[in-house]
């Protein structure tokens, strides 16, 4: 036990050559609750009253979405794993659960340290200036005010929102969707991470920004123990990941070397 803890932080195997797990997902089920999803007759006041009178158990206005159904895998230190699958297959939900942002309904997820989810949909305040959003975002990631003061100009520079005039002091709701996404990505990429989960982040911005963000992700990957990458761009997955997991309707369809998995996935998508 003791020798395991004493190993150097960047080693990917123990002294006896065993690989070190960083994320263990054990038969995990994830269920979303969605309110107000019903439409038509079920949404009328009369229907609601009838439900109360007849003591119907399931509320039609509350729907459960079984997004991930019994997924298991182990990720090791030094691995970059691509998550692929068609829209709505549960990839993003699974990442949120690994990040500890959504509780597993059944099963368990074990992680080393605190994984960070690097997404582009971190909701910030549209009424506030870009600068203020940078400060808030960094504080929410747990930085100290001194650290924030230091990295804030770098983040604004990296996002490139000031390339066409002083946009950083304008309210964020006045930004184009591309600019918003760029700023959000730049904020979440400003921190070092143990286990890094990247959700479609590479798809944001124009070609120039994409190149810059790909480079940044490679840097982050060099620091992080394990990287998960969700993307619909098979090219990106092939470039960055040696192992891939293919999710379809919340179930793992395939888990193995990227070449094999992406090939099977492409064949499957072509057949549909």
């Amino acid at each position: 036990m003791a020798d395991l803890n004493a190993m150097p932080a960047d080693a990917t195997t123990t002294a006896v050559g065993e690989r070190i797990p960083t994320v263990i997902v054990d038969d995990v089920h994830l269920i979303y609750r969605v309110y107000g999803a019903s439409s038509g007759a079920a949404a009328s006041p009369v229907a609601a009253l009838k439900r109360i009178v007849t003591r119907e158990k399931s509320r039609p206005t509350l729907r459960e979405v079984h997004a991930v159904k019994g997924v298991s895998f182990t990720a090791y230190r030094g691995e970059a794993i691509g998550l692929i699958g068609s829209n709505g297959s549960g990839k993003s939900t699974l990442l949120r659960a690994v990040a500890g942002l959504m509780p597993a309904t059944r099963g368990a997820i074990y992680t080393q340290g605190q994984p960070s989810l690097l997404g582009v949909n971190a909701a910030l305040l549209g009424d506030l200036s870009g600068e203020r959003n940078v400060t808030l975002g960094c504080l929410a990631m747990g930085m100290t005010p001194e650290q924030v003061r230091k990295v804030a100009p770098e983040i604004i520079d990296f996002s490139g929102i000031n390339e066409r005039g002083d946009f950083a002091s304008l309210p964020m709701r006045t930004y184009s969707s591309g600019m918003q996404a760029r700023l959000r990505f730049s904020i979440s990429a400003a921190k070092k991470h143990d286990v890094l989960l990247i959700d479609e982040a590479l798809a944001t911005g124009d070609t120039r920004f994409r190149r810059r963000s790909e480079q940044r992700i490679r840097q982050l990957r060099a620091d992080a123990g394990t990287v998960f990458l969700v993307s619909h761009s098979i090219g990106t997955i092939r470039d960055t990941c040696e192992r891939s997991i293919w999710l379809e309707s919340g179930v793992i369809r395939m888990d193995g070397p990227t070449d094999e998995v992406t090939k099977a996935y492409e064949d499957y998508m072509a057949r549909r």
Binding site: M1, L4, N5, I20, P21, T22, V23, I24, V25, D26, S72, T74, A97, V98, A99, G100, L101, M102, P103, A104, A108, I109, Y110, T111, Q112, P115
Partner: peptide, 17 residues
């Protein structure tokens, strides 16, 4: 080893506990 035992062996903690 079961996954839970593996997690315990390498000192992994439950996500979002």
């Amino acid at each position: 080893l079961t996954r839970a035992q593996l997690a315990a062996r390498y000192g992994l903690s439950v996500a979002g506990a």
